[in-house]
Nucleic acid binder design. Structure first.
Lengths: 191, 191
DNA sequence: ACGCCACCATACACAAGTGTATGTTGATAT
DNA sequence: ATATCAACATACACTTGTGTATGGTGGCGT
């Protein structure tokens, strides 16, 4: 029982399927859902189409698997924060605003989400996933603002603005001198 | 000199070129820049590729023309608001927030801008256009907040949040009970 | 009335992508 | 050792899209 060989590791029923999905997210970030094509993906992975059609029924199946995976990741990201009740709500909000947004890693995640939001304009499943994640995030932020003493109606408004600022920080292209995202925490959380 | 016939109206050196670009924006909103293809466009317009390659050198030329057109429209939209100094700055900000964002017209515009922002992830020209428009809008909002008496630094932060809220209102999928966008004006503009 | 030219159609060669059917290989269990 | 099966390669038929070359047509000026 060795886990050396790149194929056949006995455990994990989907070991290379994840590799396909990862590469698919890469293409999604670069060119949208229409750019997630079988042939380019296979070339990027160094295999042929034969491999793909063993793991997935067709191209649409990959797209749905991507949606499920994104939903899972985004849900887990919020869920793990809810569990780890380490600090006060205002501190946690500030920490969220302090998260890096210029690293290749975060830029890729933003591009993926942007692509999914565009995809949601025509695909009902994608729209459902986006709506679900938006709801989860807004609910989480609203709860934090609620724990800070704000009424529910006020907490919801502030959660929306907080979420909006996070998204804009990723989507809006600012040059250095207009980049005021660094010290938005005070305006949003403190007063 | 009759302007009856659908082709050859003597005036306007580009009368049908605009039709191509309009249809191209339609496809851009639905499937991103990769979906802006010559053949589907021709079928939608009821003509053949022969027409396209008379108006444009190639597919890339259309893409660049679209970028130029979007830049022109977005600039004009802000420019016209600057000209019409009709009301007080806080009133004008509230009016902007009161603009419809659920009509087919506004949804399409949001989808177009979303697609261009995704496109800007890989295309340098698209990134330049987005950066330019973002800068123009942020500058305009910051000036309005400045006219309300805020210091420049504070006005810039508030302009960013204002702009972020506008964008999120278009990109975030909310259900009715979490839709708090209607009365965000007070929180942003008044206090 | 007639030639000019903007505007579009037709035809062709080529490239890229999809899906299916089937062959091949290497690890694993017995 | 060998049958087995997961995992991939190969080959094929088909569709869709790009770009070019060239032919057709109808309005316009003179």
């Amino acid at each position: 029982m060795s886990t050396a060989s790149p194929r056949r590791t006995a455990a994990s029923p989907s070991l290379d399927t994840a590799a396909w999905i990862d590469a698919a997210f890469e293409m999604l970030a670069e060119g949208g859902i229409d750019a997630v094509r079988v042939d380019p993906l296979a070339k990027r992975l160094g295999v042929t189409r034969g491999s793909f059609y063993w793991h997935f029924k067709d191209r649409e199946a990959l797209h749905q698997a991507m949606l499920k995976e994104w939903r899972k990741r985004a849900s887990y990201q919020i869920g793990s924060r809810i569990e780890s009740r380490t600090s006060a709500p205002d501190e946690r909000l500030k920490q969220t605003l302090a998260l890096p947004n210029s690293t290749p890693r975060s830029k890729r995640a933003a591009a993926i989400e942007l692509a999914i939001r565009l995809w949601a304009q025509r695909d009902a499943n994608a729209a459902k996933a986006v709506q679900h994640i938006d709801r989860v995030r807004l609910k989480y932020y609203a709860q934090l603002f609620g724990e800070m003493g704000l009424a529910q109606s006020e907490a919801r408004k502030r959660a929306f603005m907080f979420y909006a600022t996070l998204l804009a920080r990723a989507y809006v292209i600012t040059d250095a001198d207009t980049d005021v995202s660094a010290d938005l925490a005070a305006l949003l959380v403190d007063p």
